[in-house]
Amino acid sequence: MEEARSATDRRRRAWLPWALLAGVVVLALGGGLMASRSISALVEHTAHLEQVALESEARVAELQLLRASMERRLKHLDQRQTGTSAQREAEARKAREADAQLVQREAARKKLEAKLKDALAQGDAWLDASRPEALRVELSERLLFEPGQSTLTARGVEELGRIGAVLASVEGHAVQVASHTDELPTAAGPGTEGTSWELSSARATAVVRALLERPARIAPQRLSAVGHASFRPEVPTDSPQNRQRNRRVALTLEPMPLPPAALLATLEPTPPPLAPAKSAPASGKSSKKSGRR
């Protein structure tokens, strides 16, 4: 019995190292497997975090683009609002100016009616206010000139002085002088013009010269002259009365056009040039030279 137990103990001792080794191996394999799984999970978690970070960066970039787009849109809307307000203000200012000009022209029309009462009744003058932006007064040839002549008569000079004084009082308006003749040739003689073109142009120029003088004294930049000869008749030229009606001088009063912006810049007064700075006296030895003894 003793021997059998000893043999059994010896066998157990012989297998004990191997059992311990097997346990160590099993533990090592289990720990390695767990470590491998932990590393894999950590790698997957890291990759997930990187993906989330990339998506977040893309979202931030998208939001930044959206914000920039909204800022540009708001700026554009603000500019449009500012431009619309400025445009409405400019339109309102133009409307006020147009109303004030209309009041001036209406006052001028009433004055002209009073001054031309006899000529209007005799059919030697006509007033036309059908255009809301202009006032036109027409004067018959016999009120200003002799037939075929381009020199104003004494009565013509007097009438233009009275009419011109009224037109000159309407500020901000230009006066366009247009002369019209009929289709019949003018008679040759002293002071006559060769053709209807020359006659109408000379008459328009004579009227402008009269308006430049006293009592009208209209500024030259407000005046213009044009001759239309017989090509813009008021009525058909089928009778002596109608031809007489067509031989006329029209003075049109209308607002002066605004000059271009480039011209306005040149008209602005420029400051006088700066005076050159005076140079300080140079310091140094006296220029006097001592003579030799």
Rank of each mutant, 00 (worst) to 15 (best):
Thr181Cys: 14
Ser283Asp: 15
Gln51Trp: 11
Glu106Asp: 14
Glu268Val: 07
His76Trp: 13
Thr186Gln: 09
Ala53Arg: 07
Gly172Thr: 03
Ser283Met: 13
Ser169Glu: 09
Ala68Pro: 08
Ser85Gly: 09
Glu171Ala: 05
Ala35Glu: 07
Pro132Ser: 12
Ala210Cys: 06
Glu97Tyr: 02
Leu253Met: 03
Leu66Phe: 12
Ala14Pro: 05
Pro257Thr: 04
Val177Gly: 02
Leu33Lys: 01
Gly284Val: 01
Arg59Glu: 15
Lys115Ile: 10
Leu143Trp: 13
Gly194Ile: 06
Glu213Asp: 12
Ala187Gly: 15
Arg73Gly: 11
Leu274Tyr: 09
Ala262Tyr: 12
Leu29Arg: 04
Arg109Cys: 11
Met70Asn: 13
Val249Gly: 02
Leu112Arg: 04
Ala229Val: 01
Thr192Glu: 12
Arg105Gly: 09
Leu49Trp: 14
Ala90Gly: 00
Leu120Cys: 07
Gly148His: 10
Gln101Lys: 03
Leu143Phe: 02
Ala35Met: 11
Thr270Phe: 15
Trp18Lys: 03
Arg293Ala: 13
Arg162Cys: 06
Ser85Phe: 04
Glu55Phe: 07
Ala92Ser: 04
Thr192Pro: 14
Ala14Trp: 15
Pro276Met: 07
Arg93Glu: 01
Val137Trp: 13
His228Trp: 13
Leu77Asp: 12
Ser56Ala: 13
Gly161Glu: 02
Ser200Cys: 05
Ser224Lys: 01
Gly189Arg: 00
Ser201Leu: 09
Arg73Cys: 03
Lys115Ser: 10
Thr237Trp: 12
Glu171Val: 03
Arg209Ile: 03
Ala92Tyr: 00
Leu267Ile: 02
Leu211Ile: 03
Gln122Pro: 08
Ala216Gly: 11
Leu63Ser: 09
Leu223Thr: 06
Arg214Ser: 11
Asn246His: 05
Asp78Trp: 15
Ser286Phe: 13
Pro147Gly: 09
Lys111Thr: 06
Val208Gly: 00
Ala219Gln: 09
Glu234Arg: 04
Arg209Ala: 14
Val157Ser: 11
Leu143Glu: 07
Leu160Pro: 12
Leu63Ile: 03
Pro273Asn: 10
Arg247Asn: 05
Gly23Gln: 05
Val43Gln: 15
Ala202Val: 06
Gly291Ser: 10
Ala121Tyr: 14
Pro255Cys: 03
Ala35Ser: 07
Ala178Lys: 07
Ser287Ala: 09
Val249Ile: 03
Ala4Asn: 08
Leu33Pro: 00
Ser239Phe: 12
Gln79Met: 10
Leu223Ala: 09
Ser85Cys: 08
Glu254Pro: 01
Glu89Thr: 00
Gly189Tyr: 12
Arg67Asp: 11
Gln101Thr: 02
Arg10Tyr: 14
Arg5Tyr: 07
Ala250Val: 04
Arg96Pro: 00
Lys117Tyr: 15
Pro190Ala: 12
Thr205Asn: 11
Gly148Met: 06
Glu50Asp: 13
Arg162Asn: 05
Ser56Leu: 13
